[in-house]
């Protein structure tokens, strides 16, 4: 059977990300992700279970916390997305299902979305060309999350650090269109200047 093993492939058809101090982009395609939503009346139990298992306090509104190597991203009322590296075999759906039996529904989203990391001194300027929300540090900081769009592509956007580094999670089928926009928006900061 060995020659029949399926190998994963990238969601991007054409991926040549910029990598300069002004702007760098990379795709995170080796993640395991699961969405989970509290069962009716089990919101508190869910918070306690996540806190006990991972030491994370689930954000009550648009926000992101990181604990035990897992990022918990608010995805709607009483809904979150858990994200971590797949690292060969880790399966967050299975892991969370076991820990949250009876208190939340868990759905594998590892392949639903791809995450693009964007960082550099001009990251904000580039994002401003497609994302209609305010990313000034006073309005959006590490830990902030927005469900928004980038040039007509729906994304969940969060800030990782003050570099600044952002991550945008989009549905897999949009990855190529997102990349095309990103490269065009970044062109003025990464093209060779005369």
């Amino acid at each position: 059977m060995a020659d029949h093993i399926l190998t994963p492939s990238s969601a991007f058809m054409d991926w040549h990300p910029p990598a300069t101090p002004k702007l760098a982009a990379s795709a995170r395609e080796t993640l395991t992700m699961a969405s989970f939503a509290a069962a009716r009346g089990k919101e508190q139990a869910l918070r306690e279970a996540i806190s006990a298992a991972y030491g994370a306090v689930l954000p009550k509104s648009a926000g992101r916390v990181e604990a035990g190597g897992i990022a918990f991203v608010w995805a709607g009322p009483d809904q979150w997305l858990a994200i971590t590296e797949h690292e060969g075999a880790r399966d967050l759906e299975a892991e969370l299902k076991e820990k949250l039996t009876g208190i939340a529904s868990v759905v594998d989203q590892s392949d639903s979305r791809v995450v693009v990391r964007i960082s550099g001194s001009r990251a904000r300027s580039v994002l401003a060309k497609g994302v209609p929300i305010d990313l000034h540090p006073r309005a959006f900081a590490p830990g902030s999350v927005a469900i928004t769009h980038a040039s007509h592509v729906g994304i969940i956007l969060w800030q990782v650090d003050d570099a600044p580094t952002y991550e945008a999670a989009m549905f897999r089928s949009y990855a190529d269109s997102f990349a095309h926009w990103l490269f065009e928006a970044a062109a003025e900061y990464v093209s060779a200047q005369p």
Partner: peptide, 15 residues
């Protein structure tokens, strides 16, 4: 709202 139901799109999860 009284029903215990959670809905999530999984269109893109599956090929």
């Amino acid at each position: 709202p009284e029903l215990d139901v959670q809905i999530v799109s999984a269109t893109e999860q599956w090929a």
